[in-house]
């Protein structure tokens, strides 16, 4: 049996008395998109933040390649091959698109405590940045300022930055949020392509996309897992229908 790239064991996060993430055990495999859905406030983004090291768990384990990484800071988690994109676009707006990606690629050098050679003369880093931009078809905008991109393009840039860090697992928090239908279709195709080389957590509200992409589906409600399984199984679940999915959406 294939070993999971990442798995959580009874992962829990309390904010005061509130259990935002409660006792969650999930697995993520390469070549598989594991989608997490659930109503607002279900704890999807908190879960993502726990996995990326942006938040520290109250209890439970996060095992990456057999090693517990719970409690490591975000930079260490990133260095171990976990790449995250944020729900609210989180890029360097005053920089060029290229510099955004270059900075992401630069993070994979052993150290950036290099004070003399111009950053632009590190050809490997620049090449890696352009490769990541090409991956999301943004290379033609490389020299534009990130702030001037459309919302959809900024979402793509965010993914490109994540890719430039060469992660093995991608944590994507609503990559389709606010996108037009054409942009969405392109993003779905991109994610389809990316899944071949990456394990992927996809938090998404767009049910068309979720059912088109997901190999495995977990439904969260109030910080807990309501149901987890193959998409067809979720679609058929009465509990899920009641708690979250409108009947309309299930009959498409």
């Amino acid at each position: 049996m294939v070993e999971a790239v990442l798995r959580t064991e009874r992962l829990t996060k309390h904010f005061g008395g509130l259990a935002a993430v409660n006792d969650i055990s999930l697995e993520f495999f390469t070549d598989q998109i594991h989608a997490v859905i659930g109503p607002n406030g279900a704890g999807k983004t908190t879960l993502t933040s726990l996995l990326s090291g942006d938040l520290l768990p109250t209890s439970g384990r996060i095992v990456l390649d057999g090693e517990d990484i719970a409690g490591l800071s975000a930079d260490r988690v990133s260095q171990r091959g976990v790449g995250r994109s944020y729900q609210k676009t989180n890029i360097f707006l005053p920089f060029t698109v290229f510099e955004n990606c270059r900075l992401a690629a630069q993070s994979r050098l052993k150290s950036s405590m290099r004070f003399t050679r111009p950053a632009l003369r590190y050809d490997d880093v620049s090449r890696e940045a352009l490769r990541a931009l090409a991956e999301v078809s943004l290379e033609h905008r490389a020299q534009e300022l990130a702030a001037t991109l459309s919302h959809g393009e900024q979402r793509q840039l965010e993914i490109a930055m994540t890719l430039a860090t060469r992660p093995r697992i991608l944590l994507l928090d609503e990559p389709l949020a606010g996108m037009g239908s054409e942009e969405s279709a392109r993003m779905v195709a991109l994610l389809q392509r990316l899944k071949q080389a990456h394990a992927m957590l996809l938090v998404e509200h767009d049910m068309d996309a979720v059912f088109a992409l997901a190999d495995r589906l977990t439904v969260m409600v109030n910080g807990s897992v309501l149901e987890s399984g193959a998409p067809e199984q979720i679609r058929a679940s009465a509990a899920v229908q009641e708690a979250y999915l409108g009947t309309e959406e299930l009959h498409q």
Binding site: S73, D75, S78, R84, N90, L103, R108
Partner: peptide, 17 residues
């Protein structure tokens, strides 16, 4: 490049590693 990145968005720099 790193320190300027920190000014613009330190949290993102951390999440980039």
């Amino acid at each position: 490049r790193v320190i300027v990145g920190i000014r613009v968005n330190e949290q993102r720099m951390r999440s980039l590693g």
